[in-house]
């Protein structure tokens, strides 16, 4: 298990704007989990850089590891990158719905933070076929890359 002292810590997901961190009370946090955000990994990189500037050590996980963290009671609060929100729910960076469902199941609070503005809702299908510029998937493979997803309000209420 990670060697942070707190029983559970914050989990960040999506490409968050630097502005959004100002609204978070991070003073008592010394560690945080950051979901890497395939395919671009921008979420992992941007959020980690912002956390490091604030003296918080980021522990990056792949997007499929969040369930394990919830199962083990390691998540104190989920912070999601949100493009838009109203009373019906929120348009968030892809991956948010997984975390919101897990948060509801495990009774962990969810906070919406301002995301970097998306100019596309669906990414380049080729982007998931490679990792850091190296082709991974075999020739002829089709990819599908949703960049945003709707998170219904029922998963966001504490």
């Amino acid at each position: 298990m990670p060697d942070f002292k707190s029983k559970s810590i914050y989990l960040f997901q999506g490409i968050l704007s630097a502005e959004s961190f100002k609204k978070l009370k991070l003073s008592k946090q010394d560690h945080a989990f950051v979901s890497e955000g395939r395919p671009s990994l921008e979420a992992g990189r941007v959020t980690s850089a912002i956390l490091l500037k604030q003296g918080i050590t980021p522990t990056v996980i792949s997007d499929n590891m969040a369930g394990f963290l919830f199962f083990k009671g390691l998540v104190k609060q989920v912070n999601l990158a949100c493009q838009y929100a109203d009373e019906n729910g929120a348009l968030c960076d892809t991956g948010a719905l997984i975390l919101a469902v897990l948060a509801k199941k495990h009774k962990v609070p969810v906070k919406l933070l301002i995301a970097e503005r998306r100019h596309r809702f669906v990414g380049d299908p080729e982007s998931i076929l490679s990792f850091e510029g190296t082709r991974i998937a075999s020739k002829g493979t089709h990819g599908y890359v949703p960049l945003v997803e709707w998170v219904p309000a029922k998963y966001l209420k504490e």
Binding site: S138, G140, G143
Partner: peptide
């Protein structure tokens, strides 16, 4: 990405690769 899409292709099945965060 490496194994499953390759062998499903070999089996003449239709397959699309997604990131782990796209499941929901």
């Amino acid at each position: 990405a490496k194994l499953t899409v390759w062998e499903l292709h070999q089996a003449k099945a239709s397959v699309t690769l997604v990131a782990d965060n796209a499941v929901a």
